[in-house]
Every structure is written in C-alpha cells, then in structure tokens.
C-alpha cells in the first residue's frame, strides 16, 4: 500500500456520437495513488469533470478484473496499455509517474465504429459468432459427458484458445484491422474438440466469410494482435485456422456429388 500520490495529464479522445467529429482534450488528474487502477483514475477524473459541468468521459468497462472483455482503451499507442497480457482494467497507476502525459484513444477500426468518446461498437464479433461459433446440440439431447474421452493436451489447448475474452484488442492492434486472432481462437476452440468435428469445415468457412463480409482487414502475419492480447492467445491458432480453412476449401471442392444432385 502506497501513500505517495502524484499527478498526470490524460489526453483523451472526445467524440459526441457515432460519425461525429472528435478531438483530443487534455485533463489534469491530481492525487493519483499508485494502487489505483487505470479505470479508477478515470472515475476520479469523471467525478471532477462532472462537478465542473463538463460531461464525463465515456469508457466501456464492467467486470474490472480482466475477464468480461468490455474495457477497450488504447493507452499510449497500445491496446490495453503498457503491459503484456493485461487488460485495461488491470492496468495500475503504479506504471506511471508524476507529470506523465497519457494518451487515451478508442479502438480504431471501421468494423468497430466509435459510439462515444472511448466506447466502440464491437457487435461485429457477435455476428461472427452467430455465423457458426457453436456446436449444434439441442438442450437435453447431450450424451453422457464421459462417453467421449478428450486427451488432456487437447482439452488444455482448446482451453488456451477458449480463453479469449472478445475484447477486440487484436483488431485494434492490427495494422490491417484484421480479426484473425479472435476468429482463429473461436474456430480452434471448437475445432480441436471431438464434439466440434461434425461442423468443423462448415464453421471455419462460415466464420471466415462473415469476418470478411463485416469489413475486417486481412492478416499479413505481423503478430501485433497476439502481442496486444490480454489473454495472450497465441497466433499459432491463426496458422491452425489457415490450415483448417485450406482443408475445408479443398474438401468441399472434391467431395463427391450424388447423382441427380447437380440439377
């Protein structure tokens, strides 16, 4: 526990609403405690702004423990701030010192339009999920859980991919605004498990085509995404998805067509 407080300036993007012009504004914040989280620092700022009659800075947040994926700040040019494998909400002010000017921006990507200030609309991710990010199993029709053993390594790997919190930092970090890491995490999670096999080809084709359709860019294998990912999702899953995709494309091209089906 620390008692030495300090002051910083936050240079933050202000924008009234979607499609409206925006600009940066500088706000000093005094009395910053090193044990404060970054978002708590913004809370303090917002209370001060409120009392000064300035509208508080809108920013997205919810769980404040790095799991819901709501928080989405680009701090000094890196999504989620200075640390590796840490979400914005888990960034603490002890990473800063007196007099620092901290630039806070929203995600910049066309499929994630700014809603207000630092809040962006990431519903595109939900649409990708709806395209095939599921196993079609009806409630109540599941077989006994232990009837299909899953090797521990496979389950662990699926879990590595499944940890994605859907925050979109991968898109924000990528020069191309590519959603590859997110989609690859989803595709790999389900594609690794035996339960996900029946829909494996369909899933990857549908999710990729939806991703493309929503206007995300393409991947040039730069690995900014995995470096910015708060859950350290590995870009090996992108490789895995590329392979899955190629296989699915070729399988669909060479599968036999039943007589009469061509009509």
């Amino acid at each position: 526990m620390s008692t030495n407080t300090f002051s910083v300036t936050v240079r933050v993007w202000r924008q009234d609403g979607p499609g409206r012009p925006g600009a940066f504004a500088d706000y000093p914040v005094a009395g910053v405690n090193p044990d404060m989280s970054f978002l708590e620092m913004l809370d303090v700022l917002n209370d001060e702004l409120t009392m000064k009659g300035i509208e508080p800075v809108a920013f997205a947040h919810d769980c404040r423990e790095g799991i819901c994926g709501t928080c989405s700040l680009v701090i000094d040019g890196k999504p989620h701030g200075p640390h590796h494998g840490v979400a914005s909400c888990q960034t603490y002010m002890r990473s800063y010192k007196d007099g620092d000017v901290i630039v806070v921006e929203p995600y910049r990507a066309r499929p994630f339009p700014v809603v207000k200030d630092l809040v962006t609309d990431r519903s595109a991710f939900d649409k990708i999920q709806q395209a095939g990010g599921f196993i079609s199993i009806r409630t109540g029709s599941a077989p006994e859980a232990n009837s299909v053993p899953v090797p521990k390594e496979v389950a662990d790997l699926a879990m590595d991919a499944a940890q994605c919190i859907g925050c979109g930092a991968c898109v924000a970090a990528c020069k191309n605004s590519s959603a590859m890491l997110f989609v690859a995490a989803k595709v790999s999670h389900l594609g690794l498990l035996p339960q996900g096999q029946p829909e494996r080809d369909r899933r990857v084709l549908a999710m990729v085509s939806t991703m493309d359709g929503l206007g995300f860019g393409s991947c040039t294998n730069q690995y900014e995404c995995s470096a910015a990912c708060p859950k350290l999702i590995s870009h090996d899953f992108i490789a895995r998805m590329n392979r899955d995709y190629a296989k699915a494309v070729f399988r669909s091209a060479f599968k036999p067509v039943a007589a009469g089906a061509e009509a």
Partner: peptide, 18 residues
C-alpha cells in the same frame, strides 16, 4: 453433459475423462 456437448473445455485427467 450439455456443457461438454457444447464444447466447454472442462479440465481433464490424463485418461481423457473429466
């Protein structure tokens, strides 16, 4: 049963069971 069928990656033992 339902969650496993949906692809929830529960922790497993080396034998592959939950």
């Amino acid at each position: 049963d339902q969650c496993v069928a949906q692809g929830v990656p529960f922790a497993r033992e080396y034998g592959g069971l939950l």
